[in-house]
Structure formats: structure tokens, C-alpha cells
Write a protein that binds this DNA or RNA. Structure first.
Lengths: 365, 365
DNA sequence: GCAACTAGCGTAAACGTTTACCAACACTCG
DNA sequence: CGAGTGTTGGTAAACGTTTACGCTAGTTGC
């Protein structure tokens, strides 16, 4: 008596589970289950009764029970490097949107580049029995590999992946975008271009650096190793790296960065050193996060579509999940391209060559 | 025969579940369960056998089965406004860290300020049977309220909450930080201060605006309604709002913003209009996201500790979850305070009043 | 008109845990 | 030496679903 608060129904409306719905609709629980799963063989009359009972009781199925019996959790794991790097929230948003469209939930893990954390993430995803996981942390696989493989959980990686069944890899065409960037700087007259990498244990950081060196060479420029500094894809890392460059006896006239956050850090270091972008240094980022349009001045950068990335990742995962035969294995690359904004201009040494201009301070050669 | 890949054991090592562990350790499944749950009454000898079997098989429990029988999912929901606003990733990171420390997983929902999305989020969290949810979207509750209440799921809100058992509210002391901001501007000589709000359906946006107006009044300044523009807490919104202000016949000399992203949008609008910060306009943000230190020039802003927010939210949730008696109900507010950087300076009209200087550059006595 | 087939609902057995309850064993005390 | 007691392990039920299987009834074909 004391428990029946809301409904004065005589049937104890204790828990709203499938049994409650069945009772109210005067059918068996099997019929309820079939109805809500849209199995076509259920009599429309009964179905209608079920649906109205569902609506009336405000019922929805218990995901865990469902997952337990069916073996499918309808959960997709998404492992990112660092949730505080705005590129990843943008990726997460896209990823979530397409996952939800297809009836999946997502579970996020942020590794912060730490091995221990990445292990924990993997573990948690295994425990929650994810149906698949996208490792968007651009490198690092190790432990992940073995256990997901034995459980037959598909995994999609970026740039490089252990080759095993149910795993696929999304390759990014870094070269095109970076080549456009180098060309753009070369056309402006830059000959001395530095590069701030990401953490080099990350494959994609390594890949971006390799693409840069390769593009330099094919543009006929040579790389000064002193101008290749390892950063860590963060604001602080970008700032620190630029400070290292500024401490050098010889400066490059342009800097390319392994990601946009690094570039923003660089801008800050230059601001503190009272140097101007693009007058003293030209600057090119990578990723084209939304913020890039809002830096001062707006950042010239290489766009990599995170929408594309997310879409491909989910598609790959789901294609492994559904019918194994139909694996189209679209091996096309994620494209990149240069977005020119206002952090690139003529090199300072070119200006110095112009007559009657004494370049206010900092003038070298 | 064809299936026994890894272990040559005669017992079919099909699935690694609790039964497999029990078999290997030569105990019952109950003992395995007790061991891994650290029930103290199990014989150390058996426990040792169990642990080594666990290690050998690389076993871990199925979370869904566990949740199903125990009724506790060990999942905490976290609803945020917009994952692409860097404040929220920072919050998520803190929240996740403390949740994981206490043995909980988190499940994120990003509402994007849309009612439909927020409903879906709530629904998904209900379906996954979260043990509690933190609504950090600064307002909007409606549908959430009813269903979580009937399922006895604790909810923590920000700024305002429906009063019901198992719900608590985190209040933020907007006033102190904003007051410091207004005072700071007033001391510099600003008399005409504009404010760009967040979306006003959000309680906290409303609260920040109210705090601003209140602080103006108590500082003896008066508010020009034309200088109060509604933004939406995004970069684009900040830019648009500032453009509206620039279209006005009369300009304020300083702008306060309801969050940092808005302020960055404002900086961009001013950059486009070839106006300088802080020479032409002083600017104050709100939140103190990490990026605020990196804008050009670095943003003066009001810090609200998202670490604090996250910690309080999780604590409140867990205190409701554990023993109901021990509810300390710490009603203290989240504090805010001004962080002065470089977007605030003397007002332009003050400079104009000075003799013999045409306001071109930074000049201070 | 009867047999056979089909459509569609219901019963019950899983899924992998936790935990209440019971049994067995050993130890202690009378 | 026997009974009582305390300790610890095992058996089985429960959690809320899905789904294989069987059964009933209705329809059709001969």
C-alpha cells in the first residue's frame, strides 16, 4: 500500500519491465519483444496494444539485459589522443553523430599519450564489451592488438595497423596538403622552412614529418635539421618549440607545424618575443580546426576533414560487424588540402632585399 | 580440435568467463566471484589459485552481466552544452578522472543546445541505466526531471534545479568574478561597458548577465541596453555580436563576454575591422579556458575552476548513491576570480582626452 | 470434409554474473 | 568421545532480455 504512489492500478506497477508491458497489453513477453524489435510476423492488432502499453508505461528496454543475451552491446569505442585538443572534440562530434544515426552509442577514451592510460581505456572498452573500436590516436597499438583480436572485435586504426582480420586502417594523404603548403611558401620566396613535429612516437606525427621532408626535397629546398623541432601537439609544446628556434643563431623564415594547436603556441611565442606574423615569420598549421579561422591573424593551415575520418571509421567498423562477405575495403585515402589565410606572406629576407626599407628591428644575415 | 588454438588444455577453453576461471582454479564460480570482489571470507589458498587462473586466462568480468544482477551500472552520465567549446573538454577530462578514480565510467552527451538532442541524451542514459547524471549544460531541465526521478537516479544540476529528492545543485558565485572584472575596467577609466551574453534560455547565461548588470549598478555605472547583445557562447556568435555593436552609432569602450569563446570571436571581429585590443576596446572573457592564455593578446578573463565543478558534481552524485544518511550537503559556491592579462587597458576616450597624442599606439603616462 | 501447411503466439532456455542459503568440515568444549 | 558451533565453499535463483521451438488455429487444396 505504501508503495503505490503514482498509479492507482491494482497490478503492482513496481518495475516497468517487459513483463509489465506484456501484462498491460495482455500478450506474452515474447510478443512484446518481437514488437519492439519490429519483427514482421506480429499481428498488427497485438502490436498496437503493445505500443500503447509501451507509451503508457513509458517503457524502454534494459540495454544491459539486451546486450547480455544478444552478445551485441551496440557500443563503439573511440580512443583519442587528448580530449582538450579541439581537433578531437570535433572528431568526436562527427563520430557520435554517425554512430547514433546507425543505432550505436559511443564510449570515449582519452589517452593523453600515456601508455598506462591507453591500457586502461582498452581495458574499460573490453569490459563494457564494445562492438568495435576506433583508435584515432594516430599511432601506438601494442596491447590493444592482442586482446581485441582474440575477442573478434574489429578495430580501425589511423596511418598504420597490425595486419590481422577485422582490423582496418585509414590512411591519410598527408603529402598533398603538406606539399601545397611547402609550394605556397616557396612561391612566396621562402627558402628556409622549419617544422615543429608532434610527439614522434606517434606514427602520424612521424608521417607528417616524413611528408614534410619529402616535399621539401621535391621542391628543391634543403632541410636544416636544426629547424626540425619535436613538439607534442599542444599549445605549450608549440610555444616551447618556437622558443627553441628563436634561441638559434640562424632563423628560418617560415614554420610549418604538425597541428594547429602547435601553430597557436608558436603565434604566442612570437607575440611574446614581439615578432610579427607573417612579417617576421610565416606560419602554417595542420588540421584546420574551427579555431584556426579565429586566430590573429587567421591561420593558414592544411585541412584534414575530421568528418571524413569519422565517417570512414564508423563505416569500416560496421562493415566488419555486419555481413563479413560484403567488405568493399575502400582503400582511398583521406585527403588534405591547403587553406590559405593570413599567417603566410613574403619572407623577411626578401623584404630586406627591397630598397629603402630597413626592417624595424631583428634583421639578420 | 580445430578450435583449440592457444591453450592445449583438454577443457575446451571456449569462452573465458567465470566458469572457465572456476574450472581452471578448481573451485566453484561463487568462489571466483567472491575472490575478485574481495570478499574477505575466502581462503587465501583458493584465492591464490583463482588469481593465478584469472591472470593466466586474462579474464575480466562482463560488466553487463554484473550490472544486470546488481542493478548498478557503475556509469555516470555527463551532459554538456557543446563538446566543441573547449571549456567542456576540460570539464570532461576532470570529471572523467575523478569518476574513474572512484570506479565509475562516464558517458557523455552533448546537447548542442537543442531540445531534441537533450531528450535523446537523457533517453540514452536511462537506457544504459546510468547510476547518476551531471547536467552541466547550465540550464534546461524539463523532461530530464521526471523520468530520472521515478527511477531514483540522482541528478546534479548547475545554477538551478527542480527541488526533489536525490537532486542537488551546484551554484556558481558569478558575482565575485564579474564584479572584479567590472571594477578592474572602472578603475582603468571605463564608463561605457557592453556585455555579450550567452543564449538566454540557459540559466547560467541569464545568471551571468544578471550578475553583470548588478555589478554595474553597484559600481555606479549605468547600463545601456543597446550594448547588451545576446550571443550563443560560440566563436561565430561572439563575432556576430561584436559586429552588431560596431554597427551602433555609439560604441562602448569595453566589452565583457559571457564566455571565452565569445571573447575570441569578438577579438576576431575587431581584427577584421582593423581595431586594436586593448587600445580601441578592452575585453574580458569568462571561464579561463587554457586557450585564453594563448590568444593575441592574451585574454583577461574570469576564472571558473572546472576542476572544482567536476569534483563537486561527482561527489554530490556519489554521496547520493552511497549511504543516504551521510549527506554533508556542502552548499558552498564555486568561486570565480579575475585573471588579468592583456586585453584590458585604458579606454580610448581617456586617451583622446590626453593632450598631444593622436591615439595611435599604446601609451600609458 | 479432411489433411496438410502456414501464420503467429507463448513457453522456456539461454546470456554471465551476484548472492542467499545450505552443506560440510574442522575445531572446541563439556 | 560426541555434540555444538563457526567458518567457508558450493548450488541455485535471480536480473531483463532474445529467440528456438512447439503448439494452436485458420486456410487451402484435393
Amino acid at each position: 500500500m505504501k508503495r503505490s504512489q503514482s498509479t492507482p492500478k491494482s497490478e503492482a506497477a513496481r518495475k516497468i519491465d517487459i513483463r509489465g508491458v506484456a501484462a498491460k497489453a495482455r500478450v506474452s513477453i515474447a510478443t512484446v519483444s518481437r514488437t519492439i524489435n519490429h519483427v514482421p510476423t506480429v499481428d498488427p492488432v497485438l502490436a498496437a496494444r503493445v505500443w500503447s502499453a509501451v507509451a503508457e508505461l513509458n517503457y524502454f528496454p534494459n540495454t544491459q539485459a539486451r546486450a547480455l543475451v544478444s552478445g551485441k552491446s551496440k557500443l563503439l569505442g573511440l580512443i583519442v589522443s587528448e580530449i582538450t585538443n579541439p581537433f578531437f572534440p570535433e572528431l568526436i562530434q562527427e563520430f557520435e553523430q554517425v554512430a547514433v544515426e546507425r543505432g550505436y552509442e559511443i564510449m570515449i577514451g582519452s589517452t593523453n599519450y600515456e601508455k598506462k592510460t591507453i591500457e586502461q581505456c582498452a581495458r574499460r572498452m573490453l569490459e563494457r564489451k564494445v562492438d568495435g573500436v576506433a583508435v584515432m590516436t594516430f599511432g601506438i597499438e601494442e596491447v590493444l592488438f592482442e586482446r581485441f583480436a582474440v575477442d573478434n572485435i574489429p578495430v580501425v586504426f589511423i596511418d598504420a595497423a597490425p595486419s590481422r582480420p577485422l582490423s582496418s586502417v585509414l590512411t591519410v594523404d598527408y603529402r598533398t596538403g603538406i606539399y601545397e603548403g611547402v609550394q605556397h611558401l616557396a612561391v612566396l620566396g621562402h627558402r628556409k622552412i622549419g617544422f615543429i613535429t608532434g610527439p614522434l612516437r606517434l606514427r602520424s606525427a612521424e608521417a607528417r614529418k616524413a611528408a614534410f621532408l619529402d616535399c621539401l626535397r621535391s621542391t628543391g629546398l634543403k632541410a636544416d635539421p636544426a629547424w626540425i623541432i619535436e613538439g607534442d601537439h599542444t599549445l605549450d609544446g608549440g610555444r616551447d618549440a618556437m622558443q627553441k628556434i628563436l634561441a638559434l643563431p640562424q632563423w628560418p623564415t617560415a614554420i610549418m607545424c604538425s597541428n594547429d594547436m602547435t601553430a597557436i603556441g608558436v603565434q604566442h611565442a612570437l607575440f611574446e618575443a614581439k615578432l610579427k606574423v607573417p612579417d617576421d615569420f610565416s606560419l602554417v598549421g595542420f588540421d584546420d580546426i574551427h579555431l584556426a579561422e579565429y586566430t590573429i591573424p587567421p591561420l593558414t593551415t592544411v585541412r584534414m576533414s575530421c568528418k571524413d575520418l569519422a565517417l570512414r571509421a564508423v563505416n569500416d567498423l560496421l562493415s566488419h560487424l555486419q555481413d563479413s562477405p560484403a567488405k568493399p575495403e575502400a582503400p582511398s585515402k583521406i585527403i588534405t588540402r591547403l587553406i590559405v589565410r593570413q599567417t603566410t606572406g613574403l619572407p623577411k629576407d626578401a623584404l630586406a632585399d627591397l630598397p629603402g626599407k630597413s626592417t624595424r628591428k631583428k634583421n639578420r644575415e
